[in-house]
Design a protein around this nucleic acid. Structure first.
Lengths: 127, 127
DNA sequence: CTGTATCCCCCTCGATACTG
DNA sequence: CAGTATCGAGGGGGATACAG
């Protein structure tokens, strides 16, 4: 078995792969993982490093990731509030599929771009 | 270099990885790849196998994939129209990152689910 | 500093129906 | 059979402002 990957699986709504796809496919989640791979970070550091993310969305992303056991959230009861986020082992393991995707990207984006140009030239060019 | 994966890359909008993420993260695209991995298929076969996809969306997906050089579209000028789709080498190579994602899913979904239950129990349970 | 609340906009998906 | 046209609903994302 496993000849067809997980085909029969992915067709079911709510299948495991779909769930992961939703995470991996989420821009902010990936970015957060990437940042946190370097070590524990505070909320504002995350917000600053990622760039272009609003507090609402960042919080949303962080909360979901926490719920999924991808990271831990530690609150320090200090006068200037401080909250630090850190990847769990599970979260760190995400770098494997992420790397696979990025590797594919690095290797084939040129081909994709070329195909796209070719297609655009043929379709939009002779219109 | 490459110590931090592609971090510096992914933060740029329009970076290669983002592009791939958009494809990999797309439910229908993944499903189409999975089906086509078994060989060339007609439009209706795709529509039937994938299930739950409307013609509009299927066409959209197929067009995008064709534009990106992931598959080829062959039209047969017959009385009952026939169109067949087939993955290109590039499209087939997508199975690598897809498999990486699915592997991660298979291995860790239990952990994710457990974390989710734990979290839900703690948050929603004692409310 | 860390988050939350609101509003808004866009964009994708889906359902339906129709044409080549 | 293959695909397009139209319409509508929905969710997510972003900007802003405010609270603990």
């Amino acid at each position: 078995m496993k000849e067809h990957l997980f085909a029969g699986d992915a067709f079911d709504p709510g299948c495991p792969t779909r769930l992961v796809l939703d995470r991996i496919g989420d821009k902010w989640t990936v970015l957060v993982v990437l940042v946190l791979l370097d070590g524990r970070r505070r909320f504002s550091e995350l917000r600053d490093t990622v760039g272009g993310v609003t507090p609402k969305v960042l919080t949303q992303t962080l909360r979901t990731m926490e719920r999924d056991g991808l990271l831990t959230r530690e609150v320090f009861a200090e006068v200037p509030p401080r909250v630090e986020y850190e990847l769990t082992g599970l979260g760190r393991s995400l770098q494997v599929p992420i790397r696979a995707v990025s590797d594919w990207a690095e290797q084939h984006v040129h081909a994709v771009m070329a195909a796209r140009d070719r297609h655009d030239a043929a379709s939009g060019g002779d219109a």
